[in-house]
């Protein structure tokens, strides 16, 4: 079954207390060269088949349900790498809506 991956991140200008806590722990473990961590979400959406209509629908779901535009950005909507449609070259570029 093909999988569509959606990446959502908290808006860059917002404080991310969870990411800050992880960065603080890393610093305490001596990883002083790591200057920041931000935590987002990855959704793996299984569909019967991938086509433009399905991708458009997932993009709509990503904006309306999977993310809240007040506090988050949809970073990417793409077909999972191991799916043939993702390896067809252009398909991946078409599928992505990077911002």
């Amino acid at each position: 079954m093909p999988t569509i991956v959606v990446d959502v991140m908290p808006k860059a200008e917002l404080l991310d207390p969870a990411g800050k806590a992880v960065a603080g722990s890393l610093a305490r473990q001596g990883k002083a060269h790591i200057s920041g961590v931000r935590i987002g979400k990855r959704f793996e959406i299984t569909v019967d088949e991938v086509n433009e209509a399905v991708l458009a629908e997932v993009r709509e779901i990503a904006e309306s349900m999977l993310s809240n535009s007040v506090i988050e950005d949809v970073i990417d909507v793409r077909v999972a790498e191991d799916h043939p449609a993702a390896n067809a070259g252009e398909a991946h570029a078409e599928a992505s809506v990077s911002r």
């Binding site: 917002l14 404080l15 207390p17 969870a18």
Partner: peptide, 10 residues
């Protein structure tokens, strides 16, 4: 309007 996020002190 607006949104609610994790408390700033975590």
């Amino acid at each position: 309007p607006g949104g609610l996020i994790r408390n700033d002190h975590g």
